[in-house]
Amino acid sequence: MTKPRLTSAVTGAVVLTLAFGLTLTGPAYAGEIPGNTEGGMEQSGGKDDGGIYATARITYSGSVAANGGKGNVRSADVNWTPPPCWYAPYLGAKDFKKKMSGDIESQMNAPGMGGHAGAALSELKRHYEDEYGWTDTPGYKDYNVDKDGEGMFWAAVENPNEPDLLKRNSCNDLPFWVDNGEAPPPQYEEAITPEILAALAYQHMQLPDTEVSLAPEQTTKVNLPTWAWLDKAVFDDVQATAAINVPGFNIEATTTARPVSLTLEPGTDDAVTYPASGECTINEDDSIGEPYARGKADRTPPCGITYLRSSGDGTYNLQATITWDISWTGTGGAGGDLPDGTFGNDQAVTVQEIQAVNR
């Protein structure tokens, strides 16, 4: 017998997926606000009036932005995406029975609920009440209420930031029981893990704006090198920690972003970058580039731009993007690397012709 999943008629009858509804409660800032402050994002809950435990909290530490600007990191690997859905702790046995049995009865008594939909609901009821199961999915006796407090039912969680509806709904197995301290059954490959939490922390990590210092500032001249730099005090490593802490199940993962380079895109093809690749790597003192000072006018900047044509009555859109090396560590000594992340912003640069004086 093929076990019913939360699709087609059953999906319409009983909705059990948990939205990962994140709300910002306050990121960490550098500058005038004390460093290493912690804020976070979390799903509304913990345990609410409905007994729902599943929650993932994300907290931040490190500097987010000296000027208050911030934004989410973007993966440099276009083929990498965070998980579209996963399975996580949902309800204890008694709360699950109250929720599930009420929903099933309500739908079975709805007008026109017959045919395949009615049969699916009947199987669903037998599965949780009368130990009706399948090859790899044993049934339950009275919703496991005799084991209340000894474990939890797990259910699917959708990632609301996943734009593909089919992917977001791909975790469509029925809620299943996991004893406290035990791992979920191996067939549930999408069960929440530190690695999944690390990917979620990555997805919601907030990084500082990238407004580089320029000399000359804002207005420069054609064929005159413009120096660009970021002082080491402007940004620092940024961390985000995602965790699930419920009775009998506690895991977390910390994702760390470390700035490694600055990429300059002049906003026009009529320009030369230094170095030629436009990528300025981080210095040993964690700064990027070199501040301009008197006596350096005849030198080539280690990080900068020379514009070859005037911007006329407008400006050029200089794009400054930081590349961040991202790694993670998690519960049980897990850890590894994630794709490099990028985040940047635009700056308007006016380029003028050098005015010659004729005598």
Rank of each mutant, 00 (worst) to 15 (best):
A215E: 13
E182F: 02
P163Y: 03
V260D: 02
E190F: 13
L230M: 11
A191Y: 00
Q206G: 13
D236V: 11
I244F: 08
R168D: 02
E279N: 13
P266V: 04
D269N: 15
P163F: 00
W177A: 00
A155S: 15
T210C: 07
N180Y: 13
A242K: 01
L174S: 02
E279P: 10
P216H: 03
Y202L: 07
H204Q: 14
V212S: 08
A257K: 14
A199C: 10
S261M: 01
G151P: 15
F153Q: 04
L165N: 15
T263F: 02
N161K: 13
P225V: 04
H204N: 14
D285P: 10
N169F: 03
V246S: 06
N283A: 12
K232D: 08
E284L: 06
P194Q: 03
L207A: 08
L230A: 10
D236R: 11
D231K: 13
I196H: 01
L262M: 15
V178T: 06
P259I: 05
N161M: 10
A257D: 03
E211Q: 11
F249R: 09
T255E: 01
L264Q: 01
T220R: 01
P247Q: 06
C280S: 12
L165Y: 09
T219A: 02
E265I: 14
E195R: 12
L200D: 05
E265C: 14
R168G: 04
A215N: 15
V222M: 10
V234S: 14
P194R: 02
Q206W: 07
T273R: 01
A233T: 09
F249E: 00
T219H: 00
V222N: 08
C171W: 02
S287P: 13
W229S: 14
A156L: 08
P208W: 04
D231L: 12
P186T: 14
E211I: 15
W154M: 04
Q206F: 08
G267K: 09
N159Q: 09
D269F: 07
A156V: 10
A271P: 09
I192P: 05
T268G: 01
A243K: 12
G181V: 09
P184F: 02
N245D: 10
Q206A: 11
H204A: 09
T273L: 01
G151E: 03
F153C: 08
W227T: 13
V272Y: 09
P175A: 03
F153A: 08
E182N: 07
A253D: 05
T273F: 00
N180P: 08
D285I: 15
T255V: 06
I196W: 02
T256G: 11
S277W: 06
I251D: 01
D173N: 05
I196C: 01
D179K: 10
P175Y: 00
Y274M: 07
I282T: 06
V246L: 03
A257V: 12
I192V: 14
S170Y: 05
Y188C: 04
Q239P: 11
D173I: 02
I282D: 04
A228C: 10
I251P: 01
D236G: 11
A233H: 13
Y274V: 07
D209G: 15
G181L: 08
M152P: 09
E189F: 06
I244A: 10
F249K: 08
P208Y: 00
A191V: 12
L165G: 12
T220C: 01
A271H: 07
Q187G: 15
Y202I: 13
V178R: 05
V212C: 05
T263W: 04
